[in-house]
Amino acid sequence: MVELSNADSKVEMKTQIPGEAGIWAFVAGDLLVFSVFFILIALGHAEQTDIFEASRGTLDLRFGIANTLLLLTGSLFVAIGVERCRSMPSGKNKQWFFLGIGCGVGFVVNKIFEWNAKIEAGYSPVTNDFYMYFFIFTGIHLIHVLVGLGVLLFLLRMSQRSSLSAREIQTLESGAIFWHLVDLLWIMLFALLYLL
């Protein structure tokens, strides 16, 4: 019986939209907006190459790398958590979301230290266009992280149920997709701001 239901869910999963259809409308909208941000950074880089490269040199790459690894690892935990909830719901699954939240909190703390160090060193959004983009785009991204942490808290509560309805699974997937979106957007921001 268990085998059968799992086989069924496998077949179903092949053609199913992950999460709710609506979350993808949200993802598409957010990707388009961040595309505008990415293009603005690239335009700035092309027009003021010297300023952008000099300013990029003043960033501490270690903060950026650490934050990238934190988000990637957080995404892994959340992805595993969703898989576990789907295949064997139990109270233990909440640990994966707990670990994911830990990574997210680490990101926020790291970001605060990084910004603090930059502001103490005399850099602010009005320093030049690079720093304007740096503070505002990573700030908008930070808002996404904070919203994502709220979503993960909600998922954590849901994940400990011993049986999950199809709709609850969908909600878990939708929340996780938002968290991965936060990760995905950071990857490109990190590349454009820290590595170019």
């Binding site: 991965h180 990760d183 995905l184």
Partner: peptide
């Protein structure tokens, strides 16, 4: 990779 694996686009239409 994030889209395909983590966001599970591999199962999506």
């Amino acid at each position: 990779v994030i889209g395909y694996q983590f966001m599970e686009l591999r199962h999506a239409p």
